[in-house]
Design a protein around this nucleic acid. Structure first.
Lengths: 99, 99
DNA sequence: TACACTTACTTTGCATTTCAAAGTACTTTA
DNA sequence: TAAAGTACTTTGAAATGCAAAGTAAGTGTA
């Protein structure tokens, strides 16, 4: 048994990014303020973590105007969904090694 | 539903620390090289992450000599075990919000 | 009994990441 | 039309992460 954490994804090592991904797994999309409120994070925080996930192509961003206000929607990509599922599997294996 | 990640422990946000704790949950103790090998991390890496967990009093350190060689054992404290269990619970809730 | 080598960590300092405060651009309200 | 609000984005200091280098004690080799 070697390197038991090799399948744990570095991109999901932070609780805000973990939160963003799990929100986007159950919701088709989420906007900036939804993430902000659900995660209790600051604006800059949400911006930088979503940017990091976008860079990995785990989420994509759709900008539009709703009621004449700017609105930014985040959506998990297929790649992101798969990576997150694998991450969860790795976590489960780490926590319950005998399953 | 607000702040869904509030029970996720910042101290366990990193995969090496997650690994250290899960090793110490199933093993009574682990020494430096055991952690290093199981986690595939460098020396300095193990040192700094164990130090961080020690600072939180989630693990304790026992130094001795075995076969005339220095040996450092890491042991999860009661506090550490409880904190980690709560962290896992929070993770599970995050991933499967409907359970 | 010197000398190089190994083992088991620890220290160091650079690089990356995180954070919230401040900034921007636009809209609404008085 | 001025002030306030909304929805982000940018910024730069602070915290964190990393591996290379350092240390200290023991081991082999001649």
């Amino acid at each position: 048994m070697k390197n038991i954490i090799q399948h744990i994804n570095k991109a999901f090592d932070h609780r805000v990014r973990l939160g963003i991904m799990s929100i986007l797994m159950v919701n088709e999309y989420a906007d900036f303020n939804m993430l902000k409120e659900l995660l209790g994070a600051t604006d800059g925080n949400i911006a930088s973590h979503t940017k990091a996930l976008e860079k990995e192509e785990y989420i994509k961003v759709e900008k539009s105007f709703i009621n004449r206000k700017p609105n930014t929607r985040y959506i998990a990509t297929a790649e992101g969904r798969e990576a997150f599922s694998k991450h969860i599997e790795a976590l489960e294996k780490l926590i319950n090694p005998n399953d």
